[in-house]
Amino acid sequence: MDRRFKPGDKVRVIQRSQPGHVRTPMYVRGKAGVIERVVGSFPNPETLAYGQSGLPYKILYRVNFMQKELWDDYEGKPDDSLEIEIYEHWLEAN
């Protein structure tokens, strides 16, 4: 499968509302991060949740965010970060 992003690429999680079962939590939507690694292709949970096949598979990435990008009032240290898995259709180049 073609991969739109590679490790080190700057990305942004798409800010959109979508009904139904979704694995992209609100707190990362619209936030900028960096691709940590490509995990591989996996069935799409958004259709698996409705008893469908999950096809076509989606590319899954691990994306790293600086905590201060996620939370304006982050109280920890400036280097603190967070990693989460995001499917390709939730990412755009930044």
Binding site: G20, H21, P45, L48, A49, Y50, G51
Partner: peptide, 12 residues
């Protein structure tokens, strides 16, 4: 008979 994703959908 079902997938964990379906169970999550039901709980949500």
């Amino acid at each position: 008979l079902a997938r964990v994703d379906e169970s999550r959908r039901m709980q949500e």
